[in-house]
Write a protein that binds this DNA or RNA. Structure first.
Lengths: 350, 350
DNA sequence: GTGAGTTGCTAAATCGATTAACCGCCTGTG
DNA sequence: CACAGGCGGTTAATCGATTTAGCAACTCAC
């Protein structure tokens, strides 16, 4: 029941282990075709597959990647990042060690050491939300940052293009005819990067469309359904001429709360209120009634990108700034033209 | 920048590498205390940590576990299984290789081989739903099955105790005074194990309470919000004396659909209709209004159990049958006494 | 004083691969 | 015939640890 070793193949084929290794690794060495065939056949017959540990020790390449994350495995949608990284690894014959640190620094330090001891060929440092992170001192250079920006730069990194995502979302609303568009932002404790960028995108589109931003339309709430509902209530309490006809929400859960607030007032979506979310969280966005138009976070693609850089298949264009991955808009049914009554007012240009 | 090796420590301490190894591994060998201290100090000073690959080659134990799953990483709640397995592994100094096969048999076979080549000390085979799986031929004996039952048995396995979960759910409804309780089941294509077991639990409690099961109260629907809504509509269309006062739903998403159906008829939860879900899917159960009473799937605990068995810390009591992990009921606000009008009728005992 | 036993440590084999260096043998050439 | 060079392999070192067997020195008993 013991594993078959290269020496077993050598014996079976009547050659030395060196020859077996040369043949099986397709080394351009002087080995006759007859011997090649004999070795290959012998290897197949005895069912030989090389011991990766022994090979790793000798070649100093383990064909192994370490993926450290703060909590990726337990957050619903972020698993797509893992899938992307995983797929690339598999396509190239790599295996990935996954370590979830639960954002504990001691665990993180231990994990980095353990992965280094296992001689991983590269590491990926992943977060579940787009934010800025301090770079752990022991992290080897070349480590790829996934869905986060290393403070100080100097490492390859990939993050969603949240600004462009904000632009897409708000452009869709402007294109539908809306001019009073609220941004339903997340409140403080949350990492500010994503929300700031989306807000910038929001402001950019307003500027392009010649719409004066109204501070009253930038509200904040808890990143939950309840938070979204409360923030929406505040918007809908505004006097008629200042009330928004469309909402751009920081995420889909808050958008779900906006649905609740609207329905409780008897407002129909999208007839009375248009809503765009963010994240494209399947369980939320697709199951709302009507299904939510939202901006998708390119988790899978970011995961692929990070692994491709880790494996050296792809070289980041610029170490100074993270690679921005586009966030495609997912058109569903929560955006329509503004209600007729609101369509004509509040057209004050700057 | 090269890694420091054991020989560097040996040189620094003025001893042989054998001594260093003996000291650092706390081998009960005759080494003087003075030498011990000198070695430890030297190791600390040069920052030595053993190369796990070299050690693995020599000791034939890689301190590494392979976790194969069909799609665990990308499904929302199942990541808790990973977290449980991960935590146990970390606590014991193990690292885990994660491979998501996406239920592709070729990928699966390749993954098993790659993991075996990496000399993993054990494997865990995980599913995202409780079901019966065919055992891949190349899976090493001793592989632990997580959230699935190996066809034919012979392997350690852990699954949720869905029968007992069904019992808890329906007992909660009976205790609240309900006697007309529907089971909102999932329809065919789904793996039948979980739904059958929950149904058995349902029938058991009815029998205990002396309630004759009514076939009209066992309805099926798609495992989605829409499916739950449609199935609930069928139940609420029943004549008054046969209409259920409480619903036990196969999962939380279907329960969410039941909420929609109830609300559309102006029925309040739990005043007019009590509902119990299954899964305790955070994004759904906790965010419904009112929050959903449901039965939690013990993913984290199952993950821990599987890893403990894989590491040999725990020995399964019986290889014939899978270990059943209790599913605790999570009391929220969707269960109350039946409406007064319904409380008195339909008390026909068998 | 000699042999046995203990103490403290080291030499060398080993795990299973890869790979640089080299060794016969054959052929062709000057 | 001597020698260079190509061909088809093999020998042996190596990766970085662990571990067995054994060596040298010292103690102690008789």
């Amino acid at each position: 029941m013991a594993r078959v070793r290269i020496s077993d193949v050598a014996t079976a084929a009547g050659v030395s282990t060196a020859t077996v290794s040369l043949v099986l690794n397709d080394r351009t060495a002087r080995i006759s075709d007859a011997t090649r065939d004999r070795v290959r056949q012998a290897a197949a017959e005895v069912g030989y597959t090389p011991n990766s540990v022994a090979r790793g020790l000798r070649t100093q390449r383990s064909h192994t990647i370490g993926l450290i994350s703060d909590r990726i495995a337990t957050t619903p949608f972020a698993g797509r990042m893992l899938a992307g990284a995983q797929d690339v690894a598999r396509e190239h014959g790599y295996l990935v060690f996954l370590v979830d640190t639960d954002a504990d620094e001691t665990v993180e330090r231990e994990a980095i050491r353990a992965l280094a001891d296992q001689q991983v060929d590269a590491m990926i440092y992943a977060c579940m939300w787009h934010r800025v992170v301090d770079v752990p001192a022991s992290l080897p250079r070349g480590t790829v940052f996934l869905d986060c920006r290393p403070a100080g730069g100097g490492f390859p990194a990939v993050v969603p293009d949240d600004r462009a995502g904000g632009v897409s979302a708000v452009r869709a609303l402007v294109a539908a005819g809306h001019r009073r568009i609220a941004y339903l932002d997340v409140d403080e404790p949350h990492p500010p990067v994503a929300s700031d960028l989306r807000h910038q995108g929001y402001l950019q589109v307003l500027a392009e469309a010649g719409i004066e931003p109204d501070p009253a339309l930038h509200v904040r709430g808890d990143t939950s359904s309840a938070g979204g509902r409360q923030a929406t209530d505040r918007l809908l309490d505004l006097p008629d001429d200042r009330r928004p006809t469309a909402l751009f929400c920081f995420n889909d859960r808050m958008a779900a709360g906006a649905y609740v607030a609207a329905h409780r007032r008897g407002l129909a979506i999208p007839q009375d209120l248009s809503i765009v979310g963010y994240d494209d969280q399947q369980l939320v966005a697709a199951e709302l009634d009507p299904p939510l138009t939202t901006v998708a976070l390119p988790h899978y693609e970011m995961g692929r990108w990070a692994m491709e850089v880790a494996l050296g298949i792809r070289t980041p264009d610029d170490l100074g700034a993270p690679h921005l991955m586009p966030c495609p808009i997912v058109d569903r049914d929560s955006v329509g033209p503004p209600p007729a009554t609101a369509a004509s007012d509040s057209r004050r240009r700057t």
